[in-house]
Write a protein that binds this DNA or RNA. Structure first.
Lengths: 229, 229
DNA sequence: CCAAAAGTGTTTTTGCTACACCCATGA
DNA sequence: TCATGGGTGTAGCAAAAACACTTTTGG
């Protein structure tokens, strides 16, 4: 039989975007206590009849209006006193979205005073244990980017190699060598060169590329397959 | 204000051990419905007033009698229908312990009919979504072993290089070259050669080594530090 | 003396690092 | 014509992979 004790649980999302050459995170300002007016990660409670992945997608949609987003669970935070009003366990997800400067986000929730894209190295003190959650998400994507092509989720479909390098540099927080970066990126065929080039720029126009997921999946499958012995 | 809906949640543990050259997992046979008599991962509900890490340690202790064990959270499973009796979200941990063939485990819980160490490639169908949980844990430790010295958690304090190689081969599920393995393991100073050797074996006695955590921590710290640019 | 595992080096290949100049474009 | 970022190759080094025989021990 199921026990009598129950807990509340929630989802918190670390939503990454890339804009103006910087890695950013979507923060919201809370409208209600506890932590009224504090900055926090977008998050909300999970309904009794929805799965947690589902809930994460719903919450992401409510805060950004976006669907079909790269969204991945990375850790669950369950200290007894992490929420001042009672026991709340939270499952943390990170998401990567393409910020388009045109359309602003319309958080579809009354709990939010405002939202903004905060550069990752300027994050203020956050409500609850959200600073910890954010730190853990950064650690995770730094490791993840070395074996999984998450960088492309932050870029438009067509991008230049310099843009791609900027994403890697922002996530890894270090400068990379341009020639070595290009050599490596182009060596395995996961990028497809397009006929199109930039235009209207006051310097040599860069070639656009796109991510070739088909080729990537082949390589990845191979990586997962063990050799005969 | 906190919402009215609440859920139950639990911890499930994938407890790895290494014995007779094989990687094994501790399974228990359930004593009660649902899934009465089915094999399952050790797990139990989290109390209202305990943190989840705490809860994982308690549950691990109840099933093995062991404390101070390598125990790490790896994923949370929250499908609505994963438990037939109601909404139960489970936080999954994996643990690594040294199986000593002498002392048997004494599960300190009435919910268990029996327990046994099951080789990872002979796992039967498991209760709930435990097969999925187990698969995910394997994926995790396979990746983890390439950058974190978790293999030592499975071995006694003193071990031979062949034993160590066996652990790597069992986790990675492939054969490794003996000379290259030794070269690599001995190249970075994280193993300390002992004066002691095997005895009573009908072949050349192997030298014992132990893991030098001090040296490892130095290397690891260095790895986390970013270079000047 | 045999069976069984311990232990040991070298060569080849591959991937990573470091490094500097010319090109195309719009203003 | 100038400022700006786009684009390119090579050499040296280090790590990984491939590969087979001798040594020690107890029975």
């Amino acid at each position: 039989m199921l026990p009598k004790f129950e807990s509340i649980f929630s989802i918190d999302c670390v939503i990454f975007g890339f804009d103006e050459g910087a890695l950013k995170v979507l923060l919201i300002q809370r409208n209600d206590p506890p932590f009224e007016n504090w900055w926090a990660l977008p998050g909300y409670f999970v309904e009794k009849n929805e799965g947690i992945q589902e809930a994460a997608e719903r919450i992401l949609f409510n805060f950004t209006g976006l669907t079909d987003i790269f969204l991945e669970q990375f850790y669950t935070f369950g200290d007894v006193d992490r929420h001042p009003q009672g026991r709340v366990i939270t499952v943390a997800y990170y998401a990567m979205i393409r910020i388009s400067s045109k359309d602003n986000l319309h958080p579809n929730t009354p709990f939010v005073k405002k939202a903004f894209w905060c550069p990752v190295n300027e994050i203020p003190a956050l409500a609850f244990d959200h600073s910890l959650i954010f730190e853990k998400s950064l650690q995770r994507i730094r490791r993840k980017i070395s074996y999984d092509p998450i960088a492309f989720e932050l870029l438009p479909e067509k991008f230049t190699l310099t843009q791609l390098q900027n994403v890697y540099e922002a996530i890894l927080n270090k400068k990379l060598d341009k020639r070595n970066f290009r050599k490596k990126m182009l060596s395995n065929g996961i990028l497809k060169e397009l006929d199109e080039k930039q235009h209207g720029v006051a310097f040599r126009a860069a070639t656009f590329y796109k991510f070739d997921r088909r080729t990537y999946n082949k390589l990845f499958k191979k990586e997962l397959t063990f050799s005969k012995e």
